[in-house]
Design a protein around this nucleic acid. Sequence first.
DNA 1: TTGGGTCATTAAATCGGTTCAATTAGAGAA
DNA 2: TTCTCTAATTGAACCGATTTAATGACCCAA
Lengths: 342, 342
Amino acid sequence: MKKITIVDVAKRAGVSKGTVSAVINAKNSVKPSTRDEILAVMKELNFRPKGIARKLKNGEVDNTIGLIIKDLNYPFYTSIASGVKEYANSKGYSVIITSSEDNHESEIRFSHIFSTKDIKGTIIAPVVEGTSEIEHLFKLKMVNYPFVLLEDVRGIQANVVAIDNLKAIKKAVKYLIDGGHTKIVHFAGPHKSSHTQERIQGFRHAFSESTLVFHKDMIVDIGSGYDESFTKTMEYFKDKKKEDYPTAIVCFNDQQALGVMIALKELKIKIPDEISVIGNDDIFYSQIYPVPLTTIRAPLQEIGRKAAEILINNIESSQIMPIERVVMNTEFIIRGSTKLLK
Amino acid sequence: MKKITIVDVAKRAGVSKGTVSAVINAKNSVKPSTRDEILAVMKELNFRPKGIARKLKNGEVDNTIGLIIKDLNYPFYTSIASGVKEYANSKGYSVIITSSEDNHESEIRFSHIFSTKDIKGTIIAPVVEGTSEIEHLFKLKMVNYPFVLLEDVRGIQANVVAIDNLKAIKKAVKYLIDGGHTKIVHFAGPHKSSHTQERIQGFRHAFSESTLVFHKDMIVDIGSGYDESFTKTMEYFKDKKKEDYPTAIVCFNDQQALGVMIALKELKIKIPDEISVIGNDDIFYSQIYPVPLTTIRAPLQEIGRKAAEILINNIESSQIMPIERVVMNTEFIIRGSTKLLK
DNA sequence: TTGGGTCATTAAATCGGTTCAATTAGAGAA
DNA sequence: TTCTCTAATTGAACCGATTTAATGACCCAA
């Protein structure tokens, strides 16, 4: 079953390629009767003109950029996406999005698909698993394909717009320590995220700069999904005596924090009186929980805008531009889910 | 500033196109020294090979489908997207997504971009504004481009996977009426959404099938955004006497319902004791509100899967397939935000 | 010196459309 | 009947890469 081309249609309809092309493009230079005839043949053969071939000749430009995020259902990424769209649209670019679902293979596949579809450049939230393979990024670099990363990737020099996770968490933990908390734990996110590692680091740093002593039990493996967080939190408290409870939990992100808070409610542990909870990301929905979440806000829209700006500058420059690395600062937002002890 | 092509690189490097092509594709048939020379020229000229030209020849197939949704930040659409991805991936297809932001122009632009980028077919949540223009859909039909709509669009015969909104709302309202509620209002969504119209219809139908009498004041224009809903709800209750309060509010969707509930809390109106609230869509985050929301659940993932199934069947068929129209039923989920009066 | 083999490079064909100058058909005018 | 003009159609060139058979250069063995 070979591919039907415009030649097949032309032959069958007894006309030339040019005439068929005119019909496809709704030119009014075609006599109605032949037009109908050709349309009929197109239907009969189920002819689908190949878009990429159409574009090659007329050079028509559509200015589309790509965005590869990790999770379509997490507001963190969709907020960034909004920022990307905003800037891109203002410059006359369209944005298409895809989610790698935190899967490295998908990221590779998409980076290839995008670079091969006349999508002018791509913003990538990279899946970094240990020393994960970055060949695909090198390939992009080789062909001067413009891209911007949303996290640092070890081993490659590339444009990055990142969040200063370390500093952010450090500040939050410091706030707790200065406020008299001593039993603080960090509910860590998924292993492979570089965010997870950076946040753990930040947590440790805060301790090393205080009089308190860090212990590895303070890092609890919880993950980032809501259900997952709920379950793991229930487990965590299950056979713990009340006097061993932490007085504060620093969460990996807001979604996790939500799961944690629901679990604490189930366990009849009062927030913030018995335990303080700090989130991360400041997603919209954390406002609606009855105890407003103290959290760390990253300027997500701004990150998206900045990434888009760098990308489009690269796309539009005729020379190769110097690599940019932008680190965004976060804002610590104190709301009702934390309480200081002194 | 004309476009740099492989010919420019070849000329500059003093080799043939073929050799440059070999370098681009990392073939090991090139002598390291010429390879380096060519790479240097590529950098110097900032040469970016045109993806679509690469594909034309080697016919490499990547099986990508598109999805055009209306709002990237509303879980309703991202849940559908998950379903689409799930089915598509199982069949070896990748999915790329874009959001029209409920803007008709964007929808047109994207449907064109997709059909022109070797994206095999597209699922569209159509923006329908009154008798909005549907030329772009006719164009797609003309070139036999496979697509599936997520709402009915008047004036065109096309594959549709839709929700039976009318029936859904009717059922919910009937539940309230049978339960003794008489002062029921509907907080309607954005005008241009066909969902809005269908839900209003469903509301009216429920009344016409009861002994109660419908009055147009029962339809309140609120919109669907969270902030918007909050504000409009506050306004709605502002100069209303307590005895004029409705006893039940049927909301357009969960996001609106969330805004409404927060407003009611602000107004110190108890849910469900003073007013019952019903949502729509059953988005994840409505679970975390302390009063669990009674809502209508649409099988969103299932909708996505089904749409993807129809689309891919069309893509893979060598003949034109008969048009399918699937209407999904909803499930009425009774939780804590409603209370019957008898 | 010749022949065989390997490695590197080239030139031409190709992918599937679009474009446009040239041609043809047919109608109406002179 | 011939000429003009317009409308419809054709065919060849083109877009920017990839592919592959053919060629060239070089080395080594016979």
